[in-house]
Structure formats: C-alpha cells, structure tokens
C-alpha cells in the first residue's frame, strides 16, 4: 500500500528536492569561506525570487490544465510600471494602486482565458499577444526608468525586515547580523500554501487536474472544461499580479525592460519541479523547489565571482534537459507497465 503511494509524480518531486539539497550542500562545502553556509544566503535566494515564486504558482496551475501563459513577464513589467507611474506621476496611494493592479491582472487573465477557452485559440498565440500588449502598454505609460521614492507606505513595506530570533553571527566589524526575510517572502510563501490548498482540497483545484489529465473524460464527468480553463487563466494572471507587486517591492522602480524572460524562468522552474507541460501532473511545492534550484544556481555563479553570468543560464538549461529526459523515461516506463 505504501509503495503504491510513491508514484512517478512523487518520485519526480523527491528528485527535485534531493537535487536542491545536494546542490546547496555542494555550494556550502565549496564556498564555505565566502559565507554560503550562512542562513542569510538561503534567505536571500527567497527574497530575490519572491515575485518569481508567486508567478510560478500561477504558471503551474495553467500548465496543469495543459496550457501555457507566456505573458507573465510582461505583465510583471506592466505592474511595476503602473505602480511607478501611479505613485510618482499621479500621486496616488500605493494601497489603491495595489488593488488596481490586482484588478488589471484579473481582467487581463479573463480576456486571455476567454480567447483560449471559448474561442479555442491556442494558448501560446493568445498569451504571446498578451505579452506584446503588456510590454507595449508599459512603454505607453512611460519609456523612462521611474524610481519609486515618494510613497511612504510602499517604501516602508519594501524596507521592512522580519528578523529571525536565531542564526545570527557577528561580522568583521563586530556587529551582530541577524538573519531576516522581507514581507515579499511571506506573501510568496502564503501564495504557495494557498495554491496548494486550492489545487488539492477544492472542487476547482481537482477540476484543474481533471481537465489537464484528459479534457474529454473531464467533460464526460460533467465538469465545465471551458469555465475551468477561464478561471485558471484568471488565477494565473492574478497570482502574477501579486508576484508583480512583490517584484516591484524588490526593485522599487518601473522600466520597460523589466522582468524580460521571467516567463521562461517560471516555465523552467515548474518543469524542474515536476510539472508536465501536457497537463494533469504537477505540484506547487515542486515548483517552489524549482525556483529555489534556479536561484541557487545564480547564487553559486555570483558567489564564485569569476564566472560570467551566462553560466547560470547554461547550468539551468542542462538541468532542464536532465529533468525533461527523466520525465520522458518515466513516461516510457509507465507505458510499458500498462
């Protein structure tokens, strides 16, 4: 009975977690002198990727239905720009803007979802148009880089450190350094938990898995496939908007070129985390570890200092290749057992 529980999907998740642990340990051993063993290094990975974690959760949901959303990177850029222009040019308060950004996300997702679910256009094409649109709108708002400085609440949110009561160390100047996380990390982890509960313990979440597994059988079971797809794309854009706000809290500015390629980071994180692009198989926790693996790679390359940053891309690509081949092998084994 217990053996049956450890199916292919769990094995993939397990491999992801083991790989992350192994990679991090290796980093700790090789770069022990450069502070890689400190708790803060790990927390910095979380802080740096808080936005991406939230975006990846949304992407995972969309990928579970068998779709894809490549507009997320541009939407994040648009969110940051809206925040920057709203605060600096229009003098609006950040809470109003945050609500506005989330509404824009929902509308954006609804339009994309409608085109995909009810007009039956390929997700790739629709979200590509969404990607162009969001990126272009960012430029329409402003083509300059705008730093967010004048909103007190936003600056305070960005600067708040949630300190840990343990794990501190005294640095060379004799000052105690306490490990900390930012508000964004809390938000991102809450998003992960919420998405996990949504996917596993609600009707909607189970419909997502059912639709991704086999659309026809889902329809025959009486599930509204189109409505589920529409809702999933709305969810994805909503989570992306949350991610966008986190991203903005990290960067504190809005530019046209922001978050380029973020969609691919999100997709590769989800794939490394064991989500199949064909849909129906995947787990948000896997995606979280996928993001952490990506973050660890960049962190290792940065800590080394001598390697140029494109090495991070190459290593990610190799890992991606490894995981994809692993998934293919699993699929083959599964077929043979049938």
């Amino acid at each position: 009975m217990k053996k049956a529980k450890l199916n292919n999907n769990n094995v993939l998740l397990l491999i992801t977690i083991v790989l992350f642990a192994a990679m991090y340990l290796a980093g700790c051993i090789v770069y022990a002198g450069k502070g890689f063993t400190r708790l803060q290094t790990f927390l910095n990975i979380l802080i740096g990727n808080a936005g991406l974690i939230s975006v990846t959760c949304g992407m995972t949901c969309v990928m579970l239905t068998g779709g894809i959303d490549i507009s997320v990177g541009s939407l994040v850029a648009l969110d940051c720009m809206m925040m920057a222009v709203g605060v600096e040019k229009m003098g609006m308060g950040s809470p109003v803007l945050m609500v506005f950004i989330l509404i824009v996300g929902v509308v954006f997702g609804a339009v994309q979802g409608f085109c995909i679910a009810y007009l039956e256009i390929q997700p790739f094409i629709v979200t590509m148009a969404g990607m162009f649109f969001a990126r272009g709108m960012t430029a329409v708002l402003s083509t300059q880089q705008i730093s967010i400085t004048s909103d007190a609440l936003f600056t305070k949110l960005a600067g708040t450190k949630i300190e840990f009561p343990f794990g501190g160390y005294v640095n060379t100047k004799g000052i105690l350094q306490v490990p900390y996380i930012r508000v964004t990390v809390v938000v991102a982890l809450l998003v992960v938990l919420a998405t996990f509960f949504l996917l596993n313990y609600t009707r909607f979440g189970r419909s997502i898995y059912a639709v991704g597994g086999n659309q026809q059988s889902a329809a025959l079971m009486g599930l509204d496939v189109k409505k589920t797809q529409l809702k999933t794309y709305i969810l994805c854009s909503f989570l992306t908007s949350i991610g966008g706000i986190c991203f903005c809290l990290n960067t504190m500015n809005g530019t046209v070129g922001q978050a380029t390629g973020l969609e691919m980071s999100a997709i590769s994180s989800a794939v490394i985390g064991g989500t199949l692009l064909t849909g129906g198989v995947g787990n948000v926790f896997g995606s979280l570890f996928g993001v952490l693996i990506n973050g660890t790679i960049s962190s290792l390359v940065q800590t080394n200092g001598k390697l140029i940053s494109s090495w991070a891309n190459i290593v990610t690509a190799i890992l991606l290749c490894f995981f994809i081949l692993l998934q293919a092998v699993f699929a083959k084994v599964k077929e043979r057992n049938k």
């Binding site: 148009a129 990607m131 162009f132 649109f133 272009g136 430029a139």
Partner: peptide, 10 residues
C-alpha cells in the same frame, strides 16, 4: 516608438 509598437502588433 519601437517600445510602444508591440501594443499594435498584439
């Protein structure tokens, strides 16, 4: 401008 063109393309 080249940065705004994507809106129309979309």
């Amino acid at each position: 401008s080249s940065a705004q063109a994507p809106v129309f393309k979309a």
